[in-house]
Design a protein around this nucleic acid. Structure first.
Lengths: 298, 298
DNA sequence: AAATTAGTTGCGTTTATCGCAACGATGAGC
DNA sequence: GCTCATCGTTGCGATAAACGCAACTAATTT
């Protein structure tokens, strides 16, 4: 309620007369006079000197004047920020991504997006699938990117593209000579795999169960980076989606061979967000970019 | 109008629910919901995430939240300042004083006032009577203090105390032996007077005209300080109100003798302010202090 | 001294806000 | 998976604030 009265007071003080303020604002002089009088009575102190034709501010009036001037500036700043948000010129996107997706292609995608949308801050968090789902549910992340679809309720799978797990090894590795490998084949080689609890390992577990063969990796690491390097060195095989080693596959330092298992061949990469949370602005834009790029990678 | 909606939004966001906000503010939930919705439509962007039980802020919502928080702080600061003004803890007083009033008693008065009212800034300007009146009329000074009353319209004489011009001289001066002096007596001594244009000189002029005697001062100065010093040295007489040399009279380094002239004996010291400008707060307080002290000096 | 122009006040009208109640939707518990 | 409690939303009549018009008072101007 103060807001109106202060505005009238401010304009009257600025223009030096209530009538000019009346013209500018478009309200009757009487209202202006009344609002100011009311403001004064609420503040318990006079803002303008009475018994005078022109508007002269008392000390309290000058304080109120400066106060409102600053307030206007602050409000304009807020409106600018809001405007930028609407135009997606600024904003924040929180992304939760399985570590397997990291690598030059993904980095290039993010960099390209930021170049085209300066002012948008992006946070990319890397963690396990279950954690990603939790973050999306709790709105700690706008968008999540996980292997395999999830049956979790309250999660909307926006886009899912086929992205089967592959066996990766160096070109000179014995496995590279094979067209495809079964779980049993895998068991015969040195393996580098992520620890239990990772989605990749969980998917493999199911396959092991079906094949009644249990894998015993020589090296267990949470670092996809390390898995790629071990495989490149030819010391071991690793199991990852193509997307996790796109750069290496293109330059030929790694080769990919299918892993013969129904569930694994049909595994997918999913872009998810919380059901009921309509993405808008920056997150929506990034979502569509991710969606398009993911399809081009599959 | 924004103000209300923002407040509701702020409380709802703060308490995490519209109903709690409703209890705290004392307004129906429906109004809160509506006000927030309206605010959103005016801003053109959602502030809280819909389709959710609890209140969660969007990015724009967080901006608005912070904005209003700052706004509240600013408003409280303003209210504090206003409160201080009302309690006369702060404020500004502009005083315009004839130079004749300067001296230890006046200085002590101002110092005492400032000690009892810390936070109040006082500006004491010294100038000629006509200038004092102009400053009061133009609101460049809250209070003026002049010799003699003025017939100026738009000037309100708040208080006038008798303060006849006296002849001042050193105790050993021949004039000190006289009970009282006439204008003609004055003409026989060396004189130190202010220049034409000063109120004292104007008052004397009238007396000279009546007595058909013209004074020719040996020394003319605008400095009351200098006049007092000259008189103390015994070199000349000077003409001032008692108030201008209160300290010297008390310590006995100067003596005062009446100047026999109707108008001069009835001259006064006046506290003036602009007609229609009701003094309040700090200026009013100082005015009453000045009034009381002036009477005690007369 | 009259005229002009400023701010103020009274009164009827318009607009915005409010409260109540019914509704729709979300999330917790069984 | 279903029910129930609770929270936010919407419709409608009531209420209060703000508004415009016009008459009024007061400060400047000529």
């Amino acid at each position: 309620m103060w807001d109106n009265a202060l505005q009238y007071f401010y304009e009257a003080a600025n223009l030096g007369s209530m009538r000019l303020a009346s013209d500018k604002i478009g309200v009757a002089v009487s209202s202006i006079s009344r609002q100011i009088a009311q403001l004064e009575s609420e503040m318990g102190i006079a803002l303008i000197e009475r018994g005078r034709r022109s508007i002269r501010l008392t000390e309290a009036g000058q304080l109120a004047f400066e106060y409102h001037k600053n307030q206007l500036a602050d409000r304009e700043a807020l409106l600018n920020q809001i405007q930028e948000l609407r135009e997606v010129k600024s904003g924040r996107i929180d992304l939760a991504i399985g570590e397997g997706f990291f690598g030059p292609p993904f980095t290039a995608l993010i960099e390209g997006f930021q170049r085209r949308n300066p002012g948008i801050a992006i946070t990319v968090t890397s963690c396990a699938s279950t954690e990603i789902i939790r973050m999306v549910l709790d709105d700690e992340a706008h968008i999540g990117m996980i292997l395999h679809t999830t049956s979790e309720p309250k999660i909307r799978t926006r886009s899912a593209v086929a992205q089967p797990l592959m066996v990766l090894c160096a070109p000179g590795h014995p496995a590279a000579a094979m067209e495809a490998l079964t779980i049993a084949d895998l068991a015969g080689f040195d393996l580098c795999l992520p620890p239990q609890g990772f989605r990749i390992r969980g998917t493999l577990n199911h396959a092991e169960k079906r094949a009644q063969t249990w894998l015993e990796p020589r090296l267990v690491t949470t670092s996809i980076q390390m898995m790629r390097e071990i495989a490149k060195a030819g010391r071991a095989l690793t199991v990852l989606p193509r997307i996790s080693a796109l750069a290496e596959l293109e330059e030929g330092s790694l080769v990919a061979r299918p892993l013969l298992d129904d569930a694994i061949e049909h595994s997918t990469v999913s872009l998810i967000h919380r059901l009921g949370r309509q993405l808008e602005g920056a997150p929506a834009r990034l979502m569509s970019v991710l969606e398009a790029r993911l399809k081009s990678w599959s």
